[in-house]
Design a protein around this nucleic acid. Structure first.
Lengths: 265, 265
DNA sequence: CGCGAGGTTGATTAAAGTCAATGCATGTGG
DNA sequence: CCACATGCATTGACTTTAATCAACCTCGCG
């Protein structure tokens, strides 16, 4: 299902492939170099960082870590998608995000030294494991790394503020539009299409994340499809009118479905 | 502005009054020493930190900083209460928190180097201004400070995750109960009563923060008062049944008002 | 003493939730 | 290869929750 950067695909020329592999498995060779932790580091510093990092596969539906596990490492997503959720005593869950390639997981555990969330792979995935103590040791000698780490933490804060805004202020339609726009931008940043992508999560996950039910998500999809904003087939999404969707998300335009044009079948 | 010498306290003539003042204005003498940034630092390091910190008064209803202002400093609340909110293009606001004594503001600005929120004083307040560049310079030599800074950032992340949980999963009554419990714990941590305190914000601010209207807040207060959980007079709150309120907040007990016992006056 | 901001209360409405039936793709075993 | 089970998704009917609208109260203050 998932090809960890061409590696498995070229079995018939062993030696060069191995070289390619090791390059690809290092920070220097990673396509997320410009998004991930090594951003801004020179080659030498990148290699020093690289030395403390381990790689780990996380099969679909398995946990990267669980709430309450002792904190040892941060993780950067190399390949794949995750969901990260909290849970209360009653067992209710709230998905706080869907981390994807280049994103850092586990920052919420630094304070208490226990992970505060469950992190589950939505598909067969791969992460870079960054032992936090070793990372801290590097900070004293690598101010650029430290500064970028602070930016990553800060960005996590603003990401969550965005979700708070969404949950506190927006109606269902806006929420779902924001969600799509946000995915669109994330994929664009990573060099993928901004208008065509696959949802890696179920409708239920989306609903949970947006504070809505699965039925509401279904209805929002139906409505936006009727209005010609998106085209959806299963988990394949195509955004047909990105700017209209963006306006919807930002709340500057309330879209009213005109059922006249779309009589019930 | 800055009085780093604690040794001045060893005087026992008229000077002591002044010395006491200056001690109070320094990190060493600050009552928030155990909660704020200097946590865990020895006297010498505390003084080094102290040297880069300035103090600033923020009158009620005035801005500490505004969305879009260039980021230069973090702020620690010394005295008073603030509200911190985001705003979208349409002008809708979402209060993300009510920082109080010992809390750090402005961490969301590190990434973009622009503040992402407005921060407004809810009463006449005072902050410690921590120029971020100077703080970064200290990190290389003060790993304890750095580690504690990371904990502060991490805690900010978990605080916000708690709000996301609240907004995404809880009904009005739970939200308001959580809000009260959270205030209660914050005050307890700071050595104040866990069951009697003053709300520093309007009902409208509370409603906005909790994703509810002012009317809903009013009704929740009325209901909890009827149920004997709290006593409220204007902004004075007394929690009469902390454990029941806690259960409500955690969702493990759905409280049903029995209007039979409380006929309309 | 009257004004105004902030707060409460009641009646009604709108939005999203719940419940229930149905559809559709995938995978498995006969 | 079909039949059927399963998990996920859609759609419709109805209910619940909190929002909206509107009236009124209360307290502090000029």
């Amino acid at each position: 299902m998932n090809y960890p950067l061409q590696s498995a695909t070229s079995n018939h020329t062993p030696a060069p492939v191995f070289a390619l592999n090791s390059a690809l498995r290092s920070c220097s060779g990673c396509s997320m170099h410009q998004i991930c932790l090594p951003t801004g580091l020179n080659e030498c510093d990148t290699q020093r960082l690289d030395k403390i990092i381990g790689r780990r596969k996380v099969p679909r539906d398995s946990f990267l870590y669980r709430i309450g596990d002792p904190f040892t490492s941060l993780y950067a997503v190399r390949v794949g998608h995750f969901k990260s959720y909290q849970q209360n005593i009653a067992g209710d869950r709230q998905i706080t995000g869907f981390p994807m390639t280049g994103e850092l997981l586990g920052m919420d555990a630094i304070n208490t030294e226990r992970y505060q969330c469950d992190a589950v792979a939505l598909e067969d995935s791969e992460v870079c494991e960054i032992p936090f103590e070793l990372l801290e040791n590097l900070f004293a000698q690598m101010p650029t790394l430290l500064h970028h780490f602070h930016r990553a933490l800060s960005q996590e804060i603003t990401n969550e503020q965005r979700i708070i805004m969404l949950l506190g202020n927006m109606r269902a339609e806006q929420r779902f539009a924001s969600f799509l726009i946000n995915l669109s931008m994330s994929y664009a940043t990573r060099g993928y299409s901004a208008t065509r992508f696959q949802l890696r999560m179920t409708r239920e996950d989306i609903g949970n994340h947006l504070g809505l039910t699965i039925e509401s998500i279904s209805r929002m999809i139906a409505k936006m499809r009727r209005d010609g904003l998106i085209q959806v087939r299963q988990r394949d999404v195509e955004i047909l009118n990105l700017s209209a969707l963006g306006k919807l998300a930002s709340g500057s335009e309330i879209l009213v479905s005109t059922p006249v044009y779309y009589p019930k079948q």
